[in-house]
Every structure is written in C-alpha cells, then in structure tokens.
Computed example of a mutant assay.
Amino acid sequence: MSHTTIPARVALVTGASGGIGGAIAERLAADGMAVVAHYSSRAAGAEEVVDRITAQGGRALALGGDVADEDAMTSLFQTAIDTFGGVDVVINAAGIMPLAPVAETDLEVLDRVLRTNVRGTFVIDQLAARHLRRGGALVNVSTSITRLQTPTYGAYAASKGAVEALTLVLARELRGRDITVNTVAPGPTATPLFFEGKTKQMVEGITALSPMERLGRPEDIAEVAAFLAGPGRWVNGQTIHANGGAA
C-alpha cells in the first residue's frame, strides 16, 4: 500500500457477489478505490471478487446483509468508514428479477421485489445521503426494461421506475455538497440472473434487439458506472441507458 498524502477514494458496491455488481467492484478497484463488496446470500461470490481485487494489489472487503434492513446497512456503512476512513462512492447494484405476467404475479413475490429493489435502494440512498463525502457519487442501477416494457417484467419494471424517480429528487436534495446522483440502466446483459429461465431461442431473440448484435457484458456496464463514479462530474440526476441501442 502506497503512503500518499491523498487518501484513496472508497467505494461501497451492493450486490457485488457477481454479475454487474462484481464487475463494477473490480472496475472501481482498478481505478484505485478501496472497495466494500456487499452481498446478500452469495458470500463465496463476493469473496472471489475481493480475492481478484487484492491479487491485483487493491484493497477490498466483503460484507453481507439485507439491503432493505436499515440496521444491517447502517452497520455496513459504519464498517466501511471504520475500515477505510469514509465513503466516496456508492453503487446500488443489488436487485431481484422474478418474472410473471401481471395477471399471474403472486403478490408475495411483488412484495419481495419491492422490498429489495425499492426499499433496499431507498435505504442505501438514505445512508449514502448521510455519509458520502464531498466530491462523492451515488449510482443507482435500474434497467432498460423501463423503456422496453417487455411482458412478464411488470413487477421488476415498476420497481425500477421507482428507482429512476428517486435519483433526480435526491440529486436536487444534495445541492451544495458536490455529490452527483445518477442511474445506470443496463439492457440485456450476460449475467446468471439474465440467463435464468430463458431458452436458447429467447436469448437469441433478445440479443437481436441490439444493433450491436450481442448481449451486454458486465464490463460494459461497469465502464459507465466508473465514469459516473469518477470523471463524469457534470452528469447529475440522469438515467443513462447502457444497452447497445436495444432501447
């Protein structure tokens, strides 16, 4: 670890046990940030992300907890502050995506989606608003489904519409603190969550939506998140659709 007069920036990434969140955690570490990689249930995945970061000479820590539980997340933020000295970047990548037509959606499943995707985002955003240092950045993660409006995604699209609505409100509330608040809205991205329950034919059909003729990669989304977390200081209160032109 180098001893410089400028302390390293510190990033807290929720849902960092793999997929998009894991790629973002690794990308921010490559930019020199110390990273807290949060996981909900997949501790092994988060530990693998941390191992890859530390193998490259970075600093990282895996911590678990339910994003919708304010006490657990308060503890998470405090551990980040105690370990690394503060928090400069928060990336909200935790989320769940059970699919069903609206007419057939189990309302208990809806409650679970809203708890994780809406309440969880709100809890993390609230803590970020309280703890981010000047010059900080908050990046929520939505989905291009809010534009594509694909059947069976009703509960998920509704939850992410709420995430996008929260972003500009919070950006305005943080006036005067030099903190940006944005949302990145990925299109179809090749992660385990995306492939779950889809046939080869379905995957091919979704891939064809993009004029780039491929699925997004987690690294594609991480690149946008890193821009918003670092040099993109004049982008604020926005939803950036990173989907290769699919929507």
Rank of each mutant, 00 (worst) to 15 (best):
P98R: 02
I221M: 13
G65L: 07
L110P: 08
G230W: 01
M33C: 14
G45T: 09
R172V: 04
L28H: 01
L76Y: 02
A129R: 06
T116G: 04
E26N: 01
S2V: 13
G232I: 10
N92Y: 00
V141C: 12
I20G: 05
K160V: 06
R27V: 00
S142T: 06
A72F: 01
E108G: 14
H38E: 05
T4D: 13
D71K: 09
T4V: 12
E108H: 12
V109W: 03
F77Q: 00
T167G: 08
T183D: 14
A43N: 04
I124M: 15
P7S: 10
E223Y: 02
T180Q: 01
V50P: 09
S41G: 12
L61P: 07
R119N: 04
S210V: 08
N92P: 01
N117P: 10
R52W: 06
G64V: 04
R59D: 14
N243I: 00
V109F: 04
T54P: 09
L99T: 08
Q201F: 05
G95S: 11
I91A: 14
V224M: 15
R177P: 11
V35D: 04
S41F: 08
S210T: 13
A158K: 04
G205I: 05
D88P: 10
R217Q: 14
G18K: 00
T191W: 02
T183A: 15
L209G: 03
V113Y: 07
R112N: 14
I124E: 03
A43F: 07
S159P: 12
L148E: 10
R27K: 14
R9E: 13
T74A: 14
D88F: 02
L107R: 12
R214Q: 06
R112V: 01
V163E: 09
G45C: 09
A68M: 02
A247L: 00
E164Q: 14
P218W: 00
G232W: 06
D82T: 07
H3S: 13
R177I: 05
R214N: 10
V87D: 02
A62V: 04
G244R: 00
V13F: 06
H3A: 11
R119S: 05
V102E: 06
R133M: 09
A171G: 11
L138A: 09
N140E: 12
Y156F: 15
V35Q: 03
T74V: 03
V123L: 02
P151I: 04
P151N: 08
I240D: 02
E104R: 13
Y156S: 07
T146R: 06
G15V: 07
L209T: 11
A158G: 03
I81C: 11
L170V: 13
V235C: 13
N182W: 09
N117M: 03
V35W: 01
G22L: 03
D88N: 14
